[in-house]
Structure formats: C-alpha cells, structure tokens
C-alpha cells in the first residue's frame, strides 16, 4: 500500500514584486508519508512557509509538480484547490485566526458545516479539552485556549493533513506543550499527517523527520529513530 501523502518534484517559487524577484523556493524535492510528523526548521525567508502554503493549496508553485495521493495539485484551478483544502487540509496559525464573532463551537462549525465527514464540533472541542468553554467567544479565551480552538477547528473535519505554521509561537511553554500534545494525539488517533513549522528546535524531537531549510532549498533531512512525547520536549 502506498503510504505517500505528498510528493513534490523540483518545486520553485518566484515572487515578483516590482522589479525584484524573490526566489522563495529554488527546486525542492520531497516525499511525505501519510501519518508522518514532519517538522520544518530554518531561518526566516528560507522557504518553509512558502512550501507549507503550496502544500496546503493556498499558493501555487512557479514551476514543478506536486501530488497529493493521486491528485496533481499543480494542475488544479482555484475552485478545485479550494475543494482540496476543504476536504483534506487543516490549518493552524501562530495567531489562531479565529473568527471573533463566533463562539468556540461555532468556529469549529465553520469547518464542519462544509466538510464531508466531520466530527461533531463538541467532540472536537472535547478532544482539545475545551468542552466546557465551547460557548465562549475568542475574546473570552486565553491565547492557549484560542489556539486549541484553532486545533479543534482544524481536526474537526478529520483532515488527512494538518499544516501548522508556528503553532506555539505566541504561547508560553506550558500552553505550547498542551497544544502540541493535542496535535500529537490527532496524529496518533486519526492518522493525520502533521507538518509543523517552528523556530523552536526542541519541537523537532517529536517529529519522524525534520526538513532543514536554507535559502529556498531543503539543505538536510534528519530522521528521528525515536519520537519523543511533547511533554518531554525541552523548550
């Protein structure tokens, strides 16, 4: 059985702003397996976020091919990319991106309303340990709680892939660990592929593999023989 989630070949991304060209990705090849936890490390501007956005169907490469399962993402138009995101991808951002006018549960419903095989929103919040706060608005929740709502929102549709861009960047270590535990649980229990961008090298220890980015390329791939539990991470 093919366990490949993503396979990218010679992906390049050039941003043109005015007269300057920024080469965000300079020919990246990779294969990501289903159910894998992958951490993307590297300095700012090394191409991590660009890759995450392309993998998540938020952006398109300038050249190269990208497959998810049997789908050639690089051939999809906007409408189909939206469908792809809707069906397969969950996003988690550094600043949560919750809708302030919706309660925790409604933020989750935002996703379950349009997903094909979603969990019950209450169950998703239960998973992140926020069942009792489901009728609270974002403004009534702490940062960690908001991020857990974002996680619940991301996992509620039971996505194949969770893409996390600095998920703990705005959180203290204790709260950060809780969030990571939730993500790890999703990976374990739902077999969700996890891509995590971080500046925190400690988090790399919970990954199956670590992509080290430098100047728009994957400079090095590091495989962990043993994944540690988030609670063991040294922050």
């Amino acid at each position: 059985m093919d366990r490949s989630a993503f396979s990218g070949r010679d992906l390049r991304k050039i941003y043109v702003t005015g007269e300057t060209e920024v080469h965000a990705l300079r020919g990246v090849d990779f294969d990501i397996r289903k159910g894998e936890i992958l951490v993307l490390l590297g300095p700012s501007g090394s191409g991590k976020s660009t890759l995450l956005n392309i993998v998540g169907g938020l952006d398109r490469p300038t050249s190269g091919t990208l497959h998810y399962d049997q789908i050639e993402l690089t051939a999809l138009d906007d409408r189909d990319l939206t469908r792809f995101r809707r069906a397969h991808i969950g996003f988690i951002f550094q600043f949560y991106n919750l809708i302030p006018s919706l309660t925790a549960q409604e933020n989750v419903r935002l996703v379950t309303d349009i997903a094909t095989n979603p969990m019950d929103p209450a169950d998703a919040l239960e998973l992140v340990g926020l069942a009792d706060r489901r009728h609270h608005y974002p403004a009534q929740l702490s940062g960690g709680e908001q991020q857990r709502v974002a996680v619940a929102r991301a996992i509620a549709k039971q996505p194949g892939v969770l893409l996390c861009d600095e998920p703990t960047g705005a959180l203290d270590s204790k709260t950060g660990v809780r969030v990571l535990e939730t993500l790890e649980a999703a990976n374990r229990e739902l077999d969700t592929t996890l891509l995590i961008i971080t500046h925190n090298a400690g988090i790399a220890a919970m990954a199956d593999r670590v992509f080290h980015f430098l100047d728009g390329k994957i400079a090095r791939i590091e495989s962990n023989t043993h994944r540690i539990h988030p609670s063991e991470i040294t922050w």
């Binding site: 998540g56 906007d78 469908r83 809708i99 349009i114």
Partner: peptide, 16 residues
C-alpha cells in the same frame, strides 16, 4: 479581510 482570508483557508469558496 483577515476573517475572509481565514475562511478561504478553511476551504470556503470565494462565492461563499
């Protein structure tokens, strides 16, 4: 704009 972009990311179509 920010909320709308979030919705798009979550898989909402432009029309929605």
């Amino acid at each position: 704009a920010h909320e709308l972009a979030t919705l798009r990311v979550l898989g909402y179509h432009r029309f929605e």
